[in-house]
Design a protein around this nucleic acid. Structure first.
Lengths: 143, 143
DNA sequence: GTTAAAGTGAATTCCACTTTCAATTGGAGC
DNA sequence: GCTCCAATTGAAAGTGGAATTCACTTTAAC
């Protein structure tokens, strides 16, 4: 899967006439082997540990590129930081966010999706995207 | 209803040992007779038109107070600005946000709520609150 | 190898709040 | 009404994360 993502990004780069650089390679590598919901800051700090010469701006711009290339998605869970999550082809999911430990789980529910579409249709509204987040206490924190 | 909200806020003020000031009265009045999803900036500008002596910081702090008093709720719809919506006793609703004109509609769907609770329960997760927003094009913008 | 376009990163700016602080103002007790 | 003091106000300064600038570097296509 990591291969596939790299391929997608390489194609994106080529198709847009952009350049392949070692910073982008490093950032992509690090992103792909990271937690599924990473903020710019977190990735930047992680990178600094090994590559002290990569700037915040580059991480910021590269993540934006990932989003444009379709291998990452921008998310925000109310802590004021934009997070980037890995995009899996054809998959859509919503989130369960633990307000104690901050962990983020994912879930899918087609029935909920269908109901959303119906609610919108009833009002002549055409849905482009949605966000559904459930905040609460995860199993681990409850026990 | 406007009366009821004013009563709630007056009680809140009294109970917390805070003071009743003309700025707070003016801001509350303006808030209650406004659109249901107002940003600080929007309310501030609206107020400036009639009362040039009310500062941004006061509007900001007063809206926070409204939220604490339970007559307003903080919301954020991805445009980077915090919005305050009117709270109606015992009511819960989600939002339909038009990405063209920025209008915000509300809706309720108990079945969706129930499914959310069930999804969470299946994972040992206890929901405290949630956010569900559908982004797309409203009926008006489509026609 | 040359070179022009693309990329980089330290530093700066932007922006939406948030807090500070000196001056002002309710309001409880005379 | 008058005093006193904590609460309030608003201009201005501060914050923190995002976004942009700009003076170099690198790439990659000749």
């Amino acid at each position: 899967m990591k291969r596939a993502k790299k391929k997608i990004f390489a194609d994106f780069i080529a198709q847009r006439g952009l350049k392949s650089t070692k910073q982008r390679d490093i950032i992509l590598d690090s992103f792909l082997s990271s937690d599924r919901h990473l903020s710019i800051e977190e990735l930047y700090l992680k990178l600094r540990a090994k590559h002290s010469n990569i700037g915040y701006a580059t991480v910021y711009r590269t993540l934006k590129l990932f989003a444009e290339a379709g291998i990452a998605r921008e998310m925000e869970f109310g802590d004021g930081q934009t997070r980037y999550e890995h995009v899996v082809e054809g998959e859509h999911h919503d989130h369960l966010v633990c307000t104690r430990c901050g962990s983020i789980e994912e879930f899918e529910n087609q029935t909920i999706e269908d109901l959303q579409t119906q609610v919108a249709a009833d009002r002549g509204f055409l849905i482009e995207r949605h966000r559904l987040e459930l905040y609460g206490v995860c199993g681990k924190c409850r026990s």
